[in-house]
Amino acid sequence: MLAGATNVDPAMTSAVEREARNLGYETNAAARVLRGGRAGAIGLVIAFNEIGSINGTFFATALKGAAKGLSAGDVQPVLLPADDEDRTKIPKFLRSGAVDGVVVILQHEITHLVEVLADAPVPIAWVGRPHGDIGPDPIIVDVDNHGGGVLAARALVEAGRRRIGIITGPPDMEQANDRARGWTEELTRSGIAPGPIVHGDFTVDSGMAAMTRLLQRDPELDGVFASSDLMAAGAMRVLQAAGRRVPVDVSLVGFDDVLIATTSEPPLTTVRQPLEEMGRAAAEALIAVIQGDPVDRVREFPTALVRRESL
């Protein structure tokens, strides 16, 4: 009766509903699923280790946008933290029918989920283009990473820099590869040989380690593109500790435009990707697919250079 059945005596229905209200009863969503209805919920998959740093990171802003998109669609968000070892927990949960779909905010720590979610029983919207096979007709919301790499390289060249290195992301992430390709192509077009390339994992610590390696390879570097703001913040610490002034001796450009870009000293010039809008677009596209409405399953947002004092 409480699930909305219509073949029950109206007087009995009224009496049951009245008692249910007195008891504070709420309809069980799992029971509705068992009867063939929708769960009315969508999962938000994030890297488990990001929860401790929920403010001012890449995923936090995308998560905010996704949650807003679900709320506007009258859908309950369910947070699904995933670690970098467990390959069974999330797929098992999706098979339970507790959610109608999931938004995956793709980060290096959970790239292993790309493979295990390829045959998921519910639709998936990816914030960030996954590397590898993700099944037919995927929902992907990403940014023009190649164009962002071009913007970063061009800004460094226009600042008069000629010995320019890059701290790129993990090679198993398409975003990192695209940013590095854009950087390389723009430097080559400008007649400048690309400097040393080192990899990080989009964290502050990896940016520090990568910047140390860059200086070992070319102590006279005068420009650096770090393909995330967190890595750029780590790079800045190492440069300053080495006596290399930013931007007097070395110009530094990041990528993302998250909180740390404005709180660094000096504030960081960066390539902005509209993370909140991307998260919201992924949520809205997923809701449309679940409801059977037409939708563009692949969407790419433009990037923009945000100039601050590190250039």
Rank of each mutant, 00 (worst) to 15 (best):
A3C: 09
D296E: 15
V141R: 00
E220R: 12
D9H: 10
R95K: 14
E185T: 03
A281V: 01
E277I: 01
A176S: 15
N177E: 14
W126D: 02
L230N: 14
R162W: 02
R237C: 08
V75N: 00
L113S: 02
L113A: 06
A282R: 00
A125W: 00
G254I: 09
R308Q: 10
S71M: 12
A3Q: 08
G169R: 07
R307A: 13
A60Q: 07
E26K: 14
P10E: 13
A11F: 10
I134V: 15
L151Q: 09
S251F: 03
K92S: 13
V250H: 05
G101L: 00
F225C: 01
V248D: 14
G147T: 04
T262V: 13
Q216S: 12
E17D: 10
D142P: 00
G254S: 11
V103M: 01
A72R: 15
P247H: 07
V75S: 01
D296M: 09
N22P: 01
D144L: 06
E115H: 12
M236S: 04
A60Y: 04
A242N: 13
L156K: 01
V141F: 02
D296F: 02
I287V: 14
D142N: 08
V248S: 12
L259T: 11
T111L: 13
V298A: 11
A152R: 01
I90W: 00
L239S: 04
T203H: 08
D137Y: 06
M278R: 01
A226T: 05
A159G: 07
L106S: 00
A193G: 07
G191Y: 13
P123R: 02
I164A: 07
R244E: 03
D119T: 15
F202I: 12
A233W: 08
V45M: 05
N7K: 09
V250K: 03
L187I: 06
K68T: 12
A11P: 04
P266L: 04
I139H: 01
V295G: 04
L221S: 04
G147Q: 02
I105S: 07
L156M: 08
E174N: 10
F58L: 14
A118N: 10
A180W: 11
G149M: 03
T262Q: 15
N22T: 11
V295M: 07
T303Q: 00
D257S: 02
V306L: 09
V104D: 01
D256G: 08
E277Q: 07
Q240H: 12
